Computed example of a mutant assay.
Amino acid sequence: MPQIFGMYMHTVMERAAAEAQAMGSKGIEAEHLLLAVAREPEDTVRELLDSAGLDYQTITDALQREFEEGLGAAGISVTDRDVLRPRKSIRRPSDASESAKLVLERGMAAVDDKKDLRPAHILLGLLELKAGTVPRALALAGVDRDELRARTRAALPKADR
């Protein structure tokens, strides 16, 4: 399984870098990992996301709403949708931000033996975030993070729960 997880992780990080570039970000953030996991889910992760009503478009819409609400909270009102549209960066980010590193650390902390890492550990790391864009966007999407976290833990091998 370590080789399979390594390939999955590589694919997710590549996809997250593409998401970050498309959104004009200088680094790979937790939200880019979430989008990448939604785009590149393996069977267990796909079932978990589906059970919460999450797919790539739902997550994209929730992230956009989170961005707009953040602007509103700062007193910024933008009615021109083109102003809110992300601008693709010319440079593909390769560095993980602190939020992305935290996702990976939390996901990997849930397993004693690194050879037992599964794709669901990345999802678990995302669900372990207490604050930030991802938790706010998931709340806007109507996701019960506690329930999805519990289902994700239950989908992992017994030693990793």
Rank of each mutant, 00 (worst) to 15 (best):
Q3Y: 15
Y8M: 03
M9Y: 14
M9L: 14
M9C: 06
H10G: 09
T11G: 10
E19W: 01
A22P: 13
A22I: 00
A22K: 11
K26N: 12
K26W: 15
A30C: 07
L35T: 02
A36E: 06
E40L: 00
P41A: 04
R46T: 11
R46C: 10
E47R: 08
E47A: 10
L49W: 12
L49Y: 10
A52E: 07
G53A: 03
L54W: 06
T58R: 10
I59W: 07
L63Y: 05
R65H: 09
F67Y: 14
F67I: 00
L71C: 08
L71M: 14
A74T: 08
S77G: 07
V78F: 13
V78H: 06
T79H: 08
R81Q: 15
D82H: 09
D82S: 11
P86C: 02
R87I: 03
K88W: 00
K88L: 00
S89V: 11
I90H: 08
R91W: 15
R91V: 15
P93N: 07
P93Q: 10
S94G: 13
S94D: 01
K101D: 11
V103Q: 01
L104D: 03
L104G: 01
L104A: 08
E105S: 09
G107I: 01
A110H: 04
D112S: 09
K114L: 13
K115Q: 13
K115T: 15
P119E: 12
L124W: 12
L124M: 06
G125Y: 03
L126Y: 08
A131N: 12
A131P: 15
T133M: 14
R136Q: 13
L140I: 05
A141Q: 09
D146H: 06
E147A: 14
R149W: 11
T152A: 07
R153K: 13
A154H: 12
A155K: 04
L156N: 01
L156M: 10
